[in-house]
């Protein structure tokens, strides 16, 4: 078990390294480099024209005249010391900007995960047990709609309905008076009042998918022999259901937490942009629109790493829950 955890941790470090490569590529993607952008800006904004020597000097200072791999290793070196560079647009360290927004991103993500499982699992179990009942048809319809309505459209539709019929806007995470205020009990309560809508919007597609998987898995398990064995023992139907088939069916579902996380973060990003939440989503969006690639690349890397951590946790959970896998892993 310990060996397995260590191996997974090592694997995570490799992934992190690969992620940094992707982030670096994205930073380098737009044509031109920082210096040429700066030169162009100086020219258009202030009408100053920089001399050729000055530009070369600048290029040297920022290291953009070196080959790619040198630039990358320099960047990685800074990165490993917690220096994510500067946001050109906002003139602030990238690390501060991300740190400001990350806790809320993680919070919303965790809440959306909880929502997904709290809604998806019971409904999935219900519709498997009562296959072809009215409730089952309802959940199937809900499952299909949840699957077909993309996050941002759901957000738009909810915003529209709330505005049209209740006359208020549901965007944002704080009311006006708390927007720039420092943290207080009032602000905290205010935030929790605003949280349900984004959490529902982000969690719904996942919940819909989960209903379908849970239903399918449980229907498979219900047909298995060990269920009949348990029934032949004289166990009560409900006890039996939760002790055997549901427990077995949940295992593959837990292993999909790692899968759903990229989806959640992906959906969360676009939802946050539509709803104007103070998370990393809109920050990334702004950065991309302004071609502030240093910031954008870092956010992408952090978001990806979040999903890697999530996968790691779900893998460990699965090993703890399923003796079959525990057996395999300890054998390896």
């Amino acid at each position: 078990m310990l060996f397995y955890v260590i191996r997974r941790l090592l694997y995570m470090i490799i992934i992190l390294f690969l992620l940094s490569v992707v982030a670096f590529i994205i930073i380098q993607l737009p044509p031109g480099d920082y210096v040429s952008a700066y030169v162009a800006e100086m020219q258009s904004m202030r009408g100053e024209r920089l001399a050729e020597e000055e530009i070369i000097a600048l290029r040297k200072v920022y290291g953009v005249d070196r080959p790619m791999y040198v630039q990358y290793s320099k960047w990685l070196w800074k990165l490993s010391h917690g220096n994510f560079g500067m946001s050109l647009q906002l003139q602030r360290p990238v690390i501060d900007l991300i740190a400001e927004r990350l806790p809320l991103t993680v919070l919303i993500c965790i809440l959306a995960t909880i929502f997904t499982y709290a809604v998806g699992m019971p409904i999935g179990i219900y519709s498997a047990i009562r296959q072809y009942s009215i409730g089952d048809y309802f959940s199937t319809v809900f499952g299909f709609i949840g699957l077909a309505v993309p996050n941002f459209l759901l957000a738009l539709i909810l915003m529209f309905l709330f505005y049209k019929y209740f006359g208020f806007s549901i965007g944002g995470l704080f009311s006006l008076q708390y927007m720039d205020a420092s943290w207080s009990a009032g602000k905290f309560i205010d935030m929790f009042k605003h949280l349900p809508i984004p959490v529902i919007v982000i969690g719904t597609p996942g919940a819909a998918a989960l209903i379908r998987t849970m239903r399918g898995c449980l229907l498979d398990e219900l047909r298995k022999q060990y269920v009949i064995t348990a029934r032949a023992k004289g166990l009560e139907e409900r006890t039996l259901l939760f002790k055997y088939p549901v427990r077995v069916a949940i295992n593959p579902i837990i292993s999909t937490i790692g899968w759903t996380l990229p989806w959640l973060i992906s959906g969360g990003t676009i939802t946050s942009i539509v709803l104007g939440l103070p998370t990393t989503g809109p920050l990334l969006f702004e950065a991309l629109l302004k071609q502030d690639m240093e910031l954008a690349g870092s956010i992408l890397m952090i978001l990806s790493f979040l999903t890697v951590i999530g996968t790691f946790i779900s893998d460990i959970l699965l090993v703890l829950l399923d003796p079959r896998i525990r057996y395999e892993k300890s054998a390896v």
Partner: peptide, 18 residues
């Protein structure tokens, strides 16, 4: 496995912004 763990929309956004 590596590609799947990158959230799609942020990745797509970053790439298409370029």
């Amino acid at each position: 496995e590596f590609l799947i763990c990158i959230p799609t929309i942020p990745l797509w956004m970053s790439l298409s912004a370029a």
